[in-house]
Amino acid sequence: LALSAWPAAAQTDALEPNSFEEITTYNNFYEFGTGKTDPKENAGQLTTSPWAVEINGMVDKPGTYAFDDIMAQMDIEERIYRLRCVEAWSMVIPWQGFELADLLALAGPNPEARFVEFQTLMRPEEMPGQEYPILDWPYIEGLRMDEAMHPLTIMATGLYDEPIPNQNGAPMRLVVPWKYGFKSIKSIVRITLTDDQPSTTWNKAGPSEYGFYANVNPTVDHPRWSQATERRVGGGLFSKRIDTLMFNGYDEVAPLYEGMDLEAQF
């Protein structure tokens, strides 16, 4: 469904996925270290089964939802998405997963819910990066309700038809393809529906550098680097930079932000 909704510009981009190796050895997952290869090296010890997600806040059926029970009720489909990191590199990733809207429907969102807050697992004994106070652990992210309900927004549980590797956010992570990668929170243990805008980890760490919305936007630079272009990972030492697209090329989300000043609310 969402595949057919992609704009023409995105379809002409061949979307040749990055290799499994590229996607699983070049990661930002500071819970396992700040180096790009740290997650691959340190995430093996993470226990991902059993796993459960607490869904609470403004929902009809708050509670703890076992990962296996969720999977039994969801239609798993493939979504080949571009991923644009705030650090100006990008990949194309073949995810398997389900729409976040379908997961939220299990819990019955109340009409007064305006935002969704997500939390990553906090387990320093298995996540050595959490021993260092470089970020305010546990990792928190958030979406506005309409962003969360958008059909492009998915929970990914697989990669290249295998269960998602630990370093990529096992067993279940958010993927919001029109936002910078840090919004797509990994290894989720809690989802809270709320009427307050969540206070999110990177936004707290650097409010002038990482906005709450974090929509991919080539015209709004990070204070320390330009966001106009990006380098697709895997092109080698002489790969050319490519132009970054507004909303990472997912123009169909533009109506969500009508009337907003995207330079002020970046």
């Binding site: 590229e22 070049y26 990972v233 080698g236």
Partner: peptide, 15 residues
């Protein structure tokens, strides 16, 4: 190292 892949999948940044 960067040319032969020993610096990972994003050799520009690594180098």
């Amino acid at each position: 190292l960067a040319l032969t892949g020993a610096m990972g999948v994003e050799p520009v940044n690594s180098l």
